[in-house]
């Protein structure tokens, strides 16, 4: 038992903590999602230029925002994983990357759907769309590198380095893409887009948008935490505490276990404070 004490006490503690945190994010998250969607889709006034189709921003804007935010979060986890060699931070990268990639994909997808009625085309080389597409490639690179290694910890370290390199490069990529876009702005489509950028947004639209941004953050955090806990459990499946964790769920669903085993489970799982 003593062998696992030093670095392996950590995932256990993290697991217990995230288990406690999940409901605190999940409940407000679900409520806010419902509020923002109902408010945004049903009650906010239609746009004077775009009519009803603008309502996709209540999904598009939050996902685009947090796609970037989660990449930065992933890179921070990478720094922690590299500098302090903390196992949980390595797993956090694995937990964050797909969530971030899906957010990026949602923002691209909703952008395309929005673009079709607005600009008459599914895809334009708009600076924001392009930058978002590159962000998706960056996410895919981190994920592909992580799983390419046979030794999982080596994969985590490699992915951390790549995420950090990426996060240093992202401002440069963004700047260059925006600059490239203004440089090549010849088509009427892109000019139309820039015109659509209303400098101010009506408060009746702004409030549900802010709520939806917060809701997207909470829901994404819940997904990341759940993924993190799954990854921790998967790695620790042969440890007593993890078995206890799973044992308890088995116990409550079917009370088929004998008392001795139950006692054993409780004794070992007690420290986890689930």
């Amino acid at each position: 038992m003593w062998r696992w004490l030093h670095p392996y006490a950590k995932p256990e503690a993290t697991f217990a903590l995230t288990q406690k945190l999940i409901p605190w994010f999940a409940l407000p998250g679900i409520i806010l999602v419902l509020v923002s969607l109902v408010w945004g889709l049903a009650f906010a006034p239609p746009d004077y230029q775009q009519g009803e189709s603008y309502r996709i921003i209540f999904v598009h804007v939050p996902s685009a925002m947090w796609a970037m935010g989660f990449y930065v979060g992933m890179a921070i986890m990478g720094v922690i994983a590299l500098v302090w060699q903390i196992r949980t931070a390595e797993l956090a990268i694995l937990a964050i990357a797909p969530v971030g990639a899906v957010l990026t994909f949602i923002s691209l997808f909703t952008g395309a759907i929005w673009g079709q009625p607005m600009w008459g085309t599914w895809w334009v080389w708009d600076a924001r769309l392009t930058a978002q597409l590159i962000l998706l490639f960056l996410y895919l690179g981190v994920m592909a590198l992580y799983v390419a290694f046979e030794d999982e910890r080596a994969g985590a370290k490699a992915a951390s380095i790549l995420a950090i390199v990426g996060v240093i490069n992202i401002p440069i990529i963004h700047y260059s893409v925006y600059w490239w876009n203004t440089l090549h702005q010849k088509s009427t489509v892109t000019r139309a887009i820039t015109r659509l950028e209303a400098p101010s947004i009506a408060p009746e639209m702004l409030w549900p948008l802010l709520v939806s941004i917060l809701a997207m953050l909470l829901v994404s955090i819940v997904l990341v935490l759940m993924r993190l806990n799954n990854e921790i459990l998967r790695r620790e499946i042969h440890r007593p505490w993890a078995l206890a964790e799973l044992g308890i769920t088995l116990d409550s669903s079917a009370k088929a276990h004998n008392d001795a085993e139950k006692k054993n489970v409780e004794k070992k799982g007690g420290a986890d404070a689930v």
């Binding site: 590159i134 490639f137 960056l138 895919l140 690179g141 592909a144 590198l145 390419a148 790549l162 390199v165 990426g166 490069n169 440069i172 990529i173 700047y175 260059s176 893409v177 600059w179 490239w180």
Partner: peptide, 17 residues
């Protein structure tokens, strides 16, 4: 193939400039 996936996005600023 992985190498290209990792590197090409990072080199986009260079291509643009």
């Amino acid at each position: 193939a992985l190498l290209s996936l990792l590197l090409l996005p990072l080199l986009i600023p260079l291509l643009i400039f």
